[in-house]
Design a protein around this nucleic acid. Structure first.
Length: 418
RNA sequence: GUGGGUGUAGCUCAGCCCGGUUAGAGCGCAAGAUUGUGGAUCUUGAGGCCGUGGGUUCAAGUCCCAUCACCCACCCCA
């Protein structure tokens, strides 16, 4: 027996209809915000992610599915969506068109990690990216679009965490301050954080170890170290969120794992999920386009984890519209009736009626049971008697009432009922 | 990559500590209960390389080792 690779999942009915619902809702909500769908390849040259995400990040260091293709090129299955979207934006010179450019995307992403609740090796993200504007109205719009999306799906009790992590003017100075503070209080931090101090100092801010949160209480805050421009930008983002009545908690310890983020950083969490509680997260990445291309294009976006969204929907016991049952199930007795039922089935379907029949040559009782299990509104019974009279027995599955109807009129008849 | 838990019927699980002959339950599935009627009940039945490989033993689902997978957590992220 060959199993699906570790960390991958098959999605079966009825779950597939949840997925379709989630995807359809994304199309409709993001279109309303005037974001257009973009589809990029599932694999890219490895260099794109190395440059875009940052060499020092865990994603690039140890989580990428990288392989050499037959032409000797290093290829990587995309671990996230933003780098590809930016690459495509630059490669196709979309910056030459009227700005901003507003995209959304959805699809599978790949990271080589140990699977756990809400985290898989092949997982799915839905994201939006708005490129070509640094307008703080846009920061708020992006967050609003995401919140609107999950709210329309029925989610409650979500928390927006907000921070600004500055720009390349003010952040380096802050990082130095932070390093200095941490060096002076080194013994108060956990061993991981002692390492982070060298590799990625900002990350000590969101360490979940209690002693570290203690140790950080006296630490300098980035919100107090922002340059005038960043501070003003952040102030306006907050004002705009207030205007949209989106409540948020300032979290000065919220940082983002990927190098390209600047200014606004946000995460939306649901606390009932266990360790993987971030439903979506994102921020501004004004530095990314220059890493990948030559142009400097400001941009902001977020990515949402579909599997986590589904877990939350189930956790909150939100009913998603499941595929409805059959209109008609055809029950036949005998070979002749079966053949007639088979052609009638096709007639029904061509007339827009959702119908099915038995393919196991089961007993009438079993066929009736099948009709019941399939949630059929009506069953059509065709046996020797019906064939002789040229009728079908039309049974209302709810009331149990039956009437005989001319087999030539049955399609029209049932259309008026559904 | 690290730690803990779990792999027995289609599904959920019991049996394992304290080895012993044909491996169980519930649900689901199938057939039937005056021969052409579902959603209730009852009867009967089908369905298991007990994750895989090795070892200990007269004997292994049960004990030991390895391996794989899943779950949870750490790391990190969506």
């Amino acid at each position: 027996m060959i199993n699906a690779p570790r960390g991958t999942n098959d999605i079966h009915p009825p779950d597939t209809s949840y997925w379709q619902y989630i995807e359809n809702k994304a199309h409709s909500v993001f279109n309303r915000y005037n974001y257009k769908e973009i589809r990029t390849p599932v694999f890219e040259y490895t260099e794109l992610f190395q440059r875009g995400i940052g060499e020092a990040t865990d994603i690039v260091e140890k989580e990428m599915y990288t392989f050499e293709d037959k032409g000797g090129r290093s290829i990587t299955l995309r671990p996230e969506g933003t780098a590809s979207v930016v690459r495509s934006f630059l490669e196709n010179k979309i910056y030459g068109q009227p700005q901003p450019t507003k995209y959304y995307y959805l699809g599978p992403m790949f990271r080589y990690e140990r699977p756990q609740a809400g985290r898989y090796r092949q997982f799915h993200q839905i994201g939006i990216e708005a490129l070509g504007s640094n307008d703080p109205f846009l920061d708020a719009e992006v967050i609003a679009a995401g919140m609107n999306y999950v709210q329309e799906l029925g989610l409650n009790n979500l928390k927006v965490l907000l921070n600004s992590i500055g720009c390349r003017e003010c952040r380096p100075g802050y990082v130095e301050e932070l390093k200095k503070y941490a060096a002076e209080n080194k013994e108060k931090f956990c061993s991981d954080c002692k390492n982070r101090l060298k590799t990625n100092p900002l990350r000590i801010l969101d360490c979940k170890v209690e002693q570290c949160s203690e140790a950080l209480k006296e630490a300098p805050l980035i919100l107090e170290a922002l340059c005038d421009e960043c501070e003003e930008h952040f102030r306006q983002v907050k004002t705009n969120l207030n205007r949209l009545e989106i409540s948020y908690d300032l979290d000065p310890y919220l940082v983002r794992g990927l190098d390209y983020y600047t200014n606004t950083a946000f995460e939306v969490k649901y606390t009932g999920l266990g360790a993987q509680d971030t439903i979506f997260g994102g921020g501004r990445y004004n530095g990314l386009t220059e890493e990948i291309g030559r142009q400097s294009v400001p941009a902001i976006g977020f990515a949402l984890g579909v599997e986590r969204l589904l877990l939350t929907l189930k956790e909150q016991e939100i009913e998603l519209p499941v595929e409805t049952g059959l209109d008609v199930f055809i029950i036949t007795i005998g070979e002749k009736a079966r053949s007639r039922g088979f052609t009638l089935n096709q007639e029904l379907r061509r007339a827009g009626v959702k119908s099915d029949m038995d393919y196991l040559d089961n007993s009438v009782g079993s066929q009736m049971k099948m009709a019941d299990r399939q949630n059929a509104k009506y069953s059509f019974i065709i046996g020797g008697n019906e064939l002789q009279k040229g009728v079908v027995t039309f049974r209302d599955m709810k009331s149990g009432e039956e009437e005989e109807i001319d087999i030539h009129n049955i399609v029209n008849k049932v259309q008026t009922y559904i």
